[in-house]
Simulated assay, not measured.
Amino acid sequence: MAVGVPVMQMARVRQNYLAILVAAIACFLLEAGWYTVFMNTWLNGIGRTMQWLVNSGMNPYLQYATALVMAVLMATALSCVIQLTGKQTALRGIKVGALLWAGFEMTTWSTEYIFEVRPISLFLVNAGYWLFGMMLMGAIVGAWKKKA
């Protein structure tokens, strides 16, 4: 090995699947509460009514399963990033969740909404949920370390 060349060591990710599942379920429950509170704002923003949603023919089990599976994937990704970038703590998890939200979620929603000419109220409901959801999942997977 050359003198003066730094050696990088691979960080080891140890996924805590129970923490990931709990984080995903917590985010899923937050989503249920969030969209219950902001239901009218959300419906107005998407130009739909509750009656339309009920009569849409969409299988609610498929919708809920999709939401939960996607939350599991996001919690897994958050866990990886938290572990690979520093100390695993609840506070770092919250910070990583907020940073990833700002870098990916907010930017994606903003671009989409500006071109689709959607109301800012809808942006605040949808993007706001993901800010709190990602911070919540980050806190859980950040705080709950896998035992060696």
Rank of each mutant, 00 (worst) to 15 (best):
P119M: 00
K147V: 15
E112R: 14
M50A: 11
A102Q: 03
R12H: 11
V125W: 05
A67W: 02
L91S: 12
A24W: 03
A148H: 15
L53Y: 07
W52S: 13
S121K: 04
L43F: 06
G86T: 04
A127I: 07
Q63C: 13
S56I: 09
E112P: 11
A143N: 11
R118M: 09
F38Y: 00
N16G: 08
A77E: 06
F104R: 05
V7T: 13
N16P: 09
T107E: 09
T36A: 10
A24H: 07
A19G: 03
W130M: 05
Q15R: 15
T89L: 08
M10D: 15
N16S: 09
Y113T: 06
F115D: 11
C27S: 14
T49F: 03
L131F: 01
A102R: 07
M106I: 08
I25M: 07
M10I: 15
V3W: 13
T108R: 09
L100I: 00
L18K: 12
L100H: 00
T108I: 10
S56F: 04
V37H: 04
W42T: 01
P60S: 02
L73W: 08
A148T: 15
Y129H: 05
N40G: 10
I140G: 07
V117H: 14
V96R: 03
M70C: 11
G33D: 08
A143C: 12
R48L: 10
G57F: 01
A26S: 07
Y17T: 10
L136Y: 02
E116N: 12
L124T: 04
A23Q: 02
M10N: 14
P119K: 06
W34P: 03
N59F: 06
A26F: 09
L53K: 01
P60E: 08
L43R: 06
F28T: 08
A19N: 03
L100A: 01
P6W: 08
L84T: 02
T41A: 02
L21M: 10
L30D: 06
F115S: 11
G45S: 02
A127M: 02
Q15D: 14
W109Y: 12
A26C: 05
I20G: 07
L68A: 01
M134R: 03
W34C: 06
A2F: 12
M50K: 10
M135P: 02
E112Y: 14
S56P: 04
K145I: 11
